[in-house]
Each structure stands twice: as C-alpha cells, then as structure tokens.
Simulated scan of single mutants.
Amino acid sequence: MTSHQSTQTMKPATAAKKLGVYLEATPTEFQEGVVSRTELNALQTDPPEWLLELRRTGPHPRPVVAAKLGVSIAGLARGGVTEALTTEQIEALKKDLPEWLVKERATQAEVRKEAVRIKEKKAEQAEQARQPRS
C-alpha cells in the first residue's frame, strides 16, 4: 500500500491571518482561491510586491493595529476603532494620543505587569515544590 498525502490547503481568511494582512485589501485572486501550505510558505519567505505594500502601508487587521498601538483588541473596540487602519492612520493616532489610547496603553501595561507577577509566583511555587521538606 502506498501512502497518498493530500495537499493541505486553507481558506484565504486563514492565510491572510497567518500573513498578518487584512483580507479585504488582498488581490481578488487571493481572496477567491485557496492557499496551500506550500504557497503560504512561499508568500512568507519571498513576499510579492502586493504583500510587502500591504504590510508597509495597510490597511492592517485589528490584531496588527492593536500591536502597533500597544493596546489590546478589546482596547481598540473600547476606543471606537472597529475597522482596519492604514499605517498613516495609526501614526496619526500615536501622534495625537487621544485619551482612550493613553488609558488603554496604561491598562495594557498593568496587564503585562500582572502576567509577569503571576509567572514569577508560579515559578517560585514550582521551585518550593521541588525542594525536599524537612
């Protein structure tokens, strides 16, 4: 018996997410086709001009916008940002620094600080559990 391995494919939305781009801004042929694992790897290692341009100028999907602004996706929603933004729009927000952005960045900093505290506490507890009791 010979093993027949099928080509693994994904929907364009999944591929766009893995590439970190906004699906609606990709070329029509990308949006309407399927993407194989091989094609995705090729796009990642040797991106075509359209992909480079999208990554450079956007519009960017919300996870990318959130990362560039230093906030969570929920923080974007609380700030009223529900659509994809271009790099230019993101830079304008960074420059203008609206009140919601300052607040959400502070919230995100607290969340990160708490995550570090919890991680350190768990490491300390694990270390104590490894030590022999007398």
Rank of each mutant, 00 (worst) to 15 (best):
P132V: 05
V35T: 15
K17C: 07
V111K: 13
L54A: 12
G75Q: 02
R117A: 12
L85N: 03
L69Y: 07
L43H: 10
Q131E: 11
G33C: 11
P47F: 06
Q128Y: 02
V81R: 05
K121P: 00
S134F: 07
L52C: 11
R133E: 11
T9F: 11
Q89R: 09
E39R: 15
G79V: 03
A106C: 01
P98R: 02
A129G: 02
V102H: 02
T45I: 04
G20I: 11
R105I: 03
A84H: 08
V35R: 10
P59V: 07
E91T: 07
A115P: 01
A16Q: 09
Y22C: 12
F30E: 08
G33N: 15
L69V: 08
T45L: 11
T86V: 04
K113H: 05
E124W: 07
P48T: 06
L40V: 07
P132G: 04
V116P: 00
P59L: 07
S72L: 04
R133V: 11
P63H: 06
H60K: 09
R62A: 11
V21T: 12
H4I: 15
T82Y: 12
R130M: 12
Q44T: 10
P12G: 10
V64N: 03
L76C: 06
R112Q: 09
T2S: 15
M10N: 09
T87Y: 02
G75Y: 02
E91P: 00
V65H: 04
K11H: 15
P47T: 08
S3E: 15
A15E: 11
K122W: 01
P27E: 09
S134V: 07
V71R: 04
E29P: 01
A123M: 06
T45C: 09
E24L: 14
P98N: 02
